[in-house]
Design a protein around this nucleic acid. Structure first.
Length: 496
RNA sequence: GCUCCGAUAGUGUAGCACGGCCAAUCAUGUCAGACUCUCACUCUGACGACUGGGGUUCAAAUCCCCAUCGGAGCACCA
């Protein structure tokens, strides 16, 4: 068949293996996409979706990938200075280095220019209504008195806004849409408001008192940057309708758009950036890379590979439904990468001392990795440490195998003692004796930080040489060796 | 209340634009077994879904209508 009709086979394969994950795009010209976060906290798992999907498409279609910081709110969601670099760093780590980086707070004058033009086209007006007052009118499709101001007056008010003549809340610039639009979300929305709080970035600080809202800033930037395709969360789905008014006034072409639903990760629940910030401040979490926190930084520290996270995000695809996922799939993906390369070590948590009578001191030999030849050597005397959970339900006289060492028979429970009964593996095979791991009492102290708590205990020497590597603690799980503090190794739990 | 949008196994996805090849894909998960000096890995097998009801049609997961459930927006947040 292959020789008769190779193209048929190819076609079959094509049908059977459609584009996995991301749907192919119907691209006409060049592809320009952007990821536009507000850097008011570090990138989270959610951000990684935006980074990965946008960059993946631009890679695939030879497009341009822009990171744009939408940091135009110095008050309610004020940017965090360190976060700008964190975003860029995590992008780089994810293999999504941007072709261009834009910071909105650097480009405020451009937004003023567009605003002025729209005012001149009667597309915007300065509104002095109180918020509730305006909402009441809007809800019954009534325009406010300011809507009919002429261009000259609006221009004058706008100038006064810019020069700081008004207080916060006193005036806003509204985009004229359709005050009777059937969707209340569209009616004459606010494009600029007055904020007198300085911007956290020293280069901007108190340079401006009039700040654009996302819908305006984003609309202008997407045009300026030549964005051709926007993929963003569906919370911004109505933005398009609002922003199109600007595009119409200015005679621009609106980019294509796609939206995705919210992801909720079982393991993390509903944690907002502001909620996290609080929990870190009050000491609930140790920082933005605490293993319990849903940031990219935490995942990195735990030893999740960028490639695994990328694949995970790509395979989620682009659905408008909200999804609720477990990290198991990410872990499985990561395990595939990490398992073949992670060296194996013993780590005994909640250690219990065990005397072995009749044992000669020796050096145990165990493979560094089950499918490779390299061995590790563990010198051991007549005492070993074992996990409390392994010996809790032991019965006197029970026979066990200390992995890669020898067989023992329990002779006493408290204190725990045993006698040496040989080295033969037959015991394990015939009696189906349990095999447990162990550590030498003079081994390497280890502490593991995991999403569900902390484990302290003893490991074998050699662990301290694996700094920054992901290793597997046998019968425990994968960990990333993070640092050495004094005589103790600190590891972060990756996954089972 | 007003405007949008969505619904395939436990979870996430493929299929839906152009109805038949779908007794529905892949992954993950769970269970069982094999392998193994790890509860890891690998292998084998099992489990498991088209939200409900109508309609169109020779034929519906796919088209239409209604219902139900879920979500988003209606901010001087992003």
């Amino acid at each position: 068949m292959n020789s008769l009709a190779p193209e048929l086979i190819a076609e079959l394969k094509e049908k059977k293996e459609p584009e996995k994950g991301l749907q192919p795009l119907d691209i006409k010209g060049a592809l320009v996409m952007r990821f536009a976060p507000n850097p008011n906290g570090p990138p989270t798992i959610g951000s990684s979706r935006g980074i990965v999907v946008n960059s993946e498409y631009t890679k695939k279609y030879n497009g341009k990938f822009i990171v744009r910081f939408d940091d135009t709110d110095p008050a309610t969601k004020a940017p965090m200075l360190e976060a700008y670099d964190w975003y860029l760093d995590d992008c780089k780590w994810l293999g999504a280095n941007p072709d261009e980086v834009v910071i909105a707070s650097d480009r405020i004058p451009k937004y003023y220019e567009v605003a002025e033009q729209i005012i001149k086209k009667s597309g915007a007006y300065v509104c002095f209504c109180e918020q509730e007052e305006f909402k009441a009118l809007k809800d019954v499709k009534k325009s406010c008195p300011h809507r009919d101001q002429d261009v000259e007056s609006n221009l004058g008010y706008w100038e006064k806004m810019l020069s700081g003549d008004y207080k916060e809340q006193e005036a806003v610039l509204r985009i004229k849409t359709d005050i009777a639009h059937k969707d209340p979300a569209i009616r004459d929305w606010v494009a600029f408001r007055i904020i007198k709080k300085p911007h956290p970035r020293p280069e901007v600080s108190d340079k401006y008192v009039v700040w654009p809202l996302l819908d305006f800033e984003g609309a202008v930037e997407d045009h300026l940057l030549g964005t051709t395709l926007i993929i963003r969360g569906k919370d911004l789905i109505d933005s398009e309708t609002r922003q199109r008014y600007i595009y119409t006034y200015m005679g621009w072409n609106y980019p294509e758009t796609m939206h995705w639903g919210r992801i909720q990760i079982h393991e993390f629940g509903k944690l907002s950036t502001s909620g996290l910030k609080k929990a870190i401040a009050d000491g609930t979490y140790t920082g933005w890379d605490d293993p319990r926190v849903p940031t990219i930084r935490a995942l990195r520290r735990r030893g999740i590979r960028a490639e695994a996270l990328r694949k995970f995000m790509i395979e989620l695809g682009l659905g408008e439904t909200d999804i609720s996922m477990s990290l198991d799939t990410l872990y499985a993906e990561n395990r595939k990468i990490v398992d073949p390369i992670a060296n194996r070590y013993f780590f005994v948590w909640d250690p219990v001392e065990l005397d072995v009578l009749g044992a000669e001191p020796k050096t145990a030999k165990a493979p560094l990795h089950p499918s490779r030849g390299m061995m590790r050597e563990i010198p051991v005397g007549t005492k070993v440490l074992v996990c409390k959970s392994d010996v809790e339900n032991l019965k006197d006289g029970e026979r066990l195998r200390l992995k890669d060492l020898y067989n023992i028979q329990i002779t006493g429970l408290s204190p725990l003692s045993a006698k040496f009964i040989g080295t033969d593996m037959d015991l394990v095979k015939k009696e189906k004796a349990r095999i447990i791991h162990w550590a030498p009492p003079d081994g390497q102290k280890v502490r593991v930080l995991s999403p569900d708590g902390e484990y302290s205990g003893m490991g074998e020497h050699g662990i301290e040489l694996e700094l920054d590597n992901v290793v597997q603690f046998e019968r425990f799980g994968f960990v990333r060796i993070d640092s050495i503090n004094g005589d103790e190794v600190l590891a972060y739990y990756t996954h089972k």
